Amino acid sequence: MNVRSVLPRDAIPSIDDPTFGRGYVGEDDDEVIVVDDASPARAYPVRILSYHEIVNDAVGGRPIAVTWCPICWSAAVYDRTVDGRTLTFGTSGKLADDALVMYDRETGTEWQQTTGRAIAGELEGERLRTLAAPITTWERFAAEYPDGVVLQPVRGGEAEPGRSARDAYDIRSYDMGPYERYARSDEFGLYGMRGEGRKRTWDRKDVDAKTVVLGVERDDEAVGYPIDHLEAVGGVVTDSVGGLDVVVFAADGRGGVFEDPGFAFETSPGTVRGDGATWDPTTGRSSDGRWLDRVPARRLFAFAWQDAHGPDSFAGT
């Protein structure tokens, strides 16, 4: 593992006192990380996370960290409780194999965002518990969770009476342009994002470096499912990871991992059909009100998954 310092600690400020509302400053197709075991459900926009990377929050009394690494395109939600101690996370200013390194303010331990593992410090060797948190668009979230709320921005100015959130917070304060250009480019890692450090190479042909992967880790087994591969084989794959039977969905570039309910599925545009109902491929909710049991998974670029788990960790390889 190559760990290097690129910024001062907390140069990218975490959000430690998040506020939520019904209005959103971004676009309908902006991606949001969903935590729906809250009441009401909460959406954390990638647009905002790209500028803060960590949100320390609590849902139903459970402390959580909603995290995002723009270089790895890595979304993960973690339980902030370790051995009965609640941790608060910030950005360390370091990268481990081009992945965000978080630190906890209670012990100073450093944690790799793409794995949830403590890599240096008092808690080295510990691992954060990954929570199931689907990723969808703001438009879909608003439709699926009409009572849901969204993380409010902290950049761009204070709201004044009579001004909307969009007016008060200049959307340019959360410009996704640089991140979207990086996502579309062929280069990856810190060099691809900022033109700094070593230029990385990628020599495999079956998976592109920036293919989006759904990664599942259970016990000592880790399997990454490239979304484009899932779509190429019909959008539904059944598998077993760490002894758990799972079904993995992909439709229109989105996907999710669920416990296999034992009946067959097939995909149709933007959705999945099975057992007489349609199912959302990210949330696992059916048209007749049922829910599939979600399996904790992280979404990230293939190069970051391979950095963490090796070249043989992709499904089918």
Rank of each mutant, 00 (worst) to 15 (best):
L230H: 11
R294L: 14
E196H: 04
Q112I: 10
G235A: 05
E144H: 14
R194Y: 00
I71M: 15
W111A: 07
S240H: 13
I33F: 01
V149G: 00
R127Q: 15
E31W: 04
N2L: 14
T88R: 15
G125C: 14
A38F: 04
P146F: 13
A232M: 13
V236N: 04
Y78T: 05
L123Y: 06
R155A: 03
I33L: 05
T19R: 12
E106F: 01
R298I: 08
V207E: 07
I48C: 00
P134N: 08
A41P: 12
Y145R: 12
D57H: 09
P261A: 06
S287V: 04
T91N: 15
M102S: 10
P70M: 02
E180K: 03
F265C: 13
W68N: 12
H52A: 11
S173Y: 10
A133E: 02
A297G: 10
P45Q: 02
P311Q: 07
W68V: 06
A250H: 03
D307P: 12
D37C: 11
S286N: 02
W291R: 15
Q113F: 09
D170L: 14
V237Q: 07
A304M: 10
P18L: 05
P178G: 01
R4N: 12
T130Q: 13
E139Y: 00
E124T: 15
E187A: 15
D29M: 07
A222N: 11
G224W: 08
V35G: 01
I227A: 10
A142K: 15
V237Y: 06
V55F: 05
V237P: 00
V246A: 05
R218G: 11
E27W: 09
P311W: 03
E221L: 08
G289T: 02
E53P: 11
